[in-house]
Amino acid sequence: QSSFEIPDDVPLPAGWEMAKTSSGQRYFLNHIDQTTTWQDPRKAMLSQMN
């Protein structure tokens, strides 16, 4: 996992939702293809902008 956290005020891509496990770990739900991931989809968006 990357060492940086994206602030919560940065919006997720369309169709995504952020949730937390009972222990507080963030994960991401993709409602478009109905998958979940630990990888923040905003990181991919930001790396494409740089």
Rank of each mutant, 00 (worst) to 15 (best):
45 M>S: 11
43 K>W: 06
31 H>E: 05
35 T>K: 06
31 H>F: 01
22 S>T: 14
24 G>V: 01
40 D>G: 00
45 M>K: 11
42 R>H: 01
14 A>F: 08
8 D>G: 10
44 A>W: 13
44 A>K: 05
5 E>N: 13
27 Y>H: 03
35 T>M: 13
26 R>K: 06
18 M>P: 02
11 P>K: 07
22 S>W: 05
11 P>C: 09
15 G>E: 06
14 A>T: 11
15 G>F: 08
20 K>Q: 12
49 M>W: 10
27 Y>I: 03
2 S>V: 06
16 W>G: 04
34 Q>V: 02
22 S>Q: 12
17 E>Y: 00
34 Q>G: 09
27 Y>F: 07
23 S>C: 11
21 T>G: 06
12 L>H: 03
4 F>H: 14
37 T>D: 02
29 L>R: 09
38 W>A: 06
29 L>Y: 05
17 E>A: 11
13 P>Q: 02
49 M>Y: 10
45 M>R: 13
6 I>S: 13
12 L>T: 04
34 Q>D: 05
23 S>Q: 14
28 F>H: 00
18 M>H: 04
38 W>G: 05
45 M>W: 09
24 G>T: 03
40 D>C: 02
26 R>G: 05
49 M>D: 14
29 L>T: 08
18 M>C: 09
6 I>L: 11
7 P>A: 15
27 Y>T: 03
1 Q>G: 06
3 S>V: 02
9 D>L: 06
15 G>N: 08
35 T>A: 05
9 D>E: 14
32 I>Y: 15
36 T>A: 06
27 Y>Q: 04
15 G>C: 05
29 L>W: 04
16 W>C: 05
4 F>S: 14
36 T>M: 02
1 Q>M: 12
24 G>C: 03
25 Q>W: 05
36 T>R: 04
44 A>I: 13
12 L>I: 07
24 G>E: 07
39 Q>M: 12
44 A>Y: 03
19 A>P: 00
39 Q>T: 10
20 K>M: 12
6 I>D: 01
48 Q>D: 14
15 G>K: 04
32 I>P: 01
1 Q>K: 15
48 Q>M: 12
47 S>G: 14
6 I>R: 08
30 N>G: 00
47 S>F: 09
45 M>P: 13
47 S>P: 14
18 M>E: 15
42 R>M: 01
50 N>D: 15
7 P>L: 12
31 H>V: 08
16 W>E: 04
33 D>N: 15
30 N>Y: 03
7 P>W: 06
5 E>F: 09
1 Q>H: 01
14 A>S: 12
2 S>A: 07
31 H>N: 05
2 S>D: 15
6 I>E: 03
30 N>H: 04
10 V>R: 10
21 T>L: 07
16 W>Q: 02
38 W>M: 09
37 T>P: 01
19 A>M: 06
10 V>P: 08
20 K>V: 14
11 P>E: 07
33 D>C: 12
47 S>N: 07
7 P>V: 13
2 S>L: 10
16 W>F: 09
44 A>Q: 15
50 N>H: 06
41 P>A: 00
22 S>G: 11
21 T>H: 08
33 D>L: 14
18 M>L: 12
44 A>T: 12
44 A>F: 09
12 L>M: 13
46 L>G: 14
44 A>V: 09
25 Q>P: 02
45 M>E: 14
46 L>S: 14
31 H>M: 07
27 Y>G: 02
5 E>I: 11
46 L>C: 10
11 P>D: 02
50 N>I: 09
33 D>R: 09
46 L>E: 14
18 M>G: 06
32 I>N: 02
26 R>L: 09
26 R>V: 12
4 F>E: 13
4 F>G: 03
49 M>L: 13
12 L>K: 03
16 W>I: 04
17 E>L: 04
45 M>L: 14
26 R>D: 08
26 R>T: 13
50 N>R: 08
1 Q>L: 11
18 M>A: 12
5 E>Y: 10
10 V>Y: 12
39 Q>C: 13
48 Q>R: 11
18 M>N: 03
8 D>P: 06
13 P>Y: 00
21 T>Y: 03
39 Q>F: 14
21 T>W: 02
19 A>S: 11
44 A>P: 14
46 L>Y: 15
8 D>V: 07
12 L>R: 02
12 L>S: 03
1 Q>E: 08
30 N>W: 01
31 H>T: 10
35 T>V: 15
13 P>C: 00
29 L>M: 12
12 L>P: 07
2 S>C: 06
20 K>H: 13
41 P>M: 00
34 Q>N: 06
8 D>R: 06
2 S>P: 03
29 L>N: 03
15 G>W: 04
12 L>V: 08
1 Q>P: 05
14 A>R: 13
30 N>S: 05
5 E>R: 10
25 Q>I: 07
36 T>H: 04
48 Q>S: 14
45 M>Y: 15
43 K>T: 06
27 Y>L: 03
45 M>I: 15
40 D>A: 01
14 A>I: 08
7 P>N: 15
21 T>D: 12
43 K>C: 05
10 V>S: 13
40 D>K: 02
7 P>C: 14
34 Q>W: 03
13 P>E: 04
19 A>F: 06
15 G>V: 02
34 Q>K: 15
42 R>K: 00
2 S>N: 12
34 Q>M: 08
13 P>N: 00
